[in-house]
Structure formats: C-alpha cells, structure tokens
C-alpha cells in the first residue's frame, strides 16, 4: 500500500484484500447493530411496539436493546428533545464507541415538528450528527425498521480505507453543538406559517420572534 506502482492500483484504491475484509466487517457490523433507545415521547411507544411481538426488531440483529450507551452501535433518538435534554443527548452520543450511527426518529427529533417553541431543539442534527431521518408523527414500526435497514445499507457501502474520514472524532467537540451558529440558524429557521401566527384575540400584539434587542450579542 502506498507504493506507487504503475501495474497495481494506487494508494487509496480498494484492493482485493481490503474489499473482502470490508465485506466481512460490514456484514458483521450491520447484522449485530445494538440500538441505544433514546426514547422520550410518542415515538418511544412505537419503538417499544417495534421491539414487541408483532414487529420484532430481533429479526434484524437487534435483539438486545442496549440501555447503556457504551455497548451500543446505533442511537435511536425517538421523540422530541427539549433544550433541557440536549446536553444529555450529546453526552450519550459522546459516550458511545465508534463505530456508531444515529437515527433521528420522527418529525420532532428531525426538525422540531409542530413544536416551534421556546423550549424545543429544532432538529437534533444541530447537536449530534444524524445518519438517517425517519419522517412521521410518529413513524410506524415499519418506518423505524426501514430506517434501520437504511443504516444497514449505509454500512454496506463503508470501507475501512475511509476510516479516518468516517469515524474520526474531535475530542474537543464533545459536549458542544455539532453545528456552528450560522448552520443552526439555517437549520432551525421557521417553516410554513409556524411563527407567522400570532394571537388575534384582541389582545396586545406580540410578535412571534423575539425582540432583537433582547438577544445576546
């Protein structure tokens, strides 16, 4: 590897050995994904239903719900995440070992959903990196299973040669937002008419957006 040889593939090009190794490693990884169920609200109930008899997540190598983040491979964030819970979510993500993946289950975890309010995180991708978003309010168990299968598909395409790019983590990033201020502003911008609504009940007008002078510099 790394030796320039015109007759052989160059550095970084997958060779026979690495692709076979990738295949075996990915096969093992994707069929024994242990989920870390970070369930908070309605979606958690559907997650429980997925684990129960009718849907049976165990068929996909997820027999064991790993309630300890240190033995988990895939974080399923199911339900709304208020700002008060955000450091807990980040802490759990930091505690998980590589390789790890993250699923954002449901509208609230993915974008804040209907809760465009003062207390809610507008999408957990501002806090942790997300691999698969599952839409729905809440998604059906089939939706969750489909999302987990998409994670499996994603693993299938990974290569050990890209390890540094895929799995490296900055220790200084622990406990900090994943996104910078501008990206957070982009991601959490109001959508639809969620904040254009105000009270029209004959009371004082209160703008939905905070007064600019109240914001911290």
């Amino acid at each position: 590897m790394g030796v320039a040889n015109p007759g052989l593939p160059g550095a970084g090009t997958p060779a026979f050995l690495t692709t076979r190794l990738d295949f075996v490693v990915n096969w093992a990884r994707r069929n024994s994904l242990w989920p870390m169920p970070f369930g908070t609200a309605c979606c958690a109930i559907e997650m429980m239903a997925s684990a129960a008899s009718n849907f049976d997540l165990a068929r996909f190598g997820m027999e064991r719900m790993s309630f300890s983040p240190r033995q988990a491979d895939v974080l399923i964030c199911a339900g709304r995440v208020p700002y008060k819970l955000a450091p807990v979510l980040r802490r759990i993500w930091d505690q998980m070992m590589q390789p790890k993946w993250c699923i954002s289950m449901g509208a609230c975890a993915s974008s804040g959903g209907v809760f465009d309010v003062y207390s809610m995180v507008q999408g957990i991708d501002t806090i942790v990196p997300v691999d698969v978003y599952i839409p729905g309010c809440p998604p059906r168990p089939e939706g969750l299973i489909y999302g987990l299968m998409m994670v499996q598909e994603k693993i299938r395409g990974e290569s050990l040669a890209d390890h540094a790019a895929l799995r490296a983590e900055d220790p200084l990033g622990a406990g900090r937002p994943r996104a910078g201020d501008e990206e957070v502003a982009d991601l959490t911008g109001p959508f639809g008419n969620s904040t254009d609504q105000n009270r029209v009940s004959g009371l004082v007008e209160t703008g939905a957006i905070g007064r600019p002078e109240d914001r911290l510099p």
Partner: peptide, 22 residues
C-alpha cells in the same frame, strides 16, 4: 403574554446555552 413563542434568544444562542449546562 409578553414572552415570544420562540423564546427571546436566537436558536443558536439557545443551543449553545443548552449545551453548556452540565
């Protein structure tokens, strides 16, 4: 009633403040 629906700080500020809590 004088409290805006989305809070007084920007979302970035709220996220930053939330994560600095231990």
């Amino acid at each position: 009633k004088d409290f805006p629906l989305r809070g007084r700080f920007s979302r970035a500020e709220q996220t930053r403040r939330a994560l600095t809590q231990d």
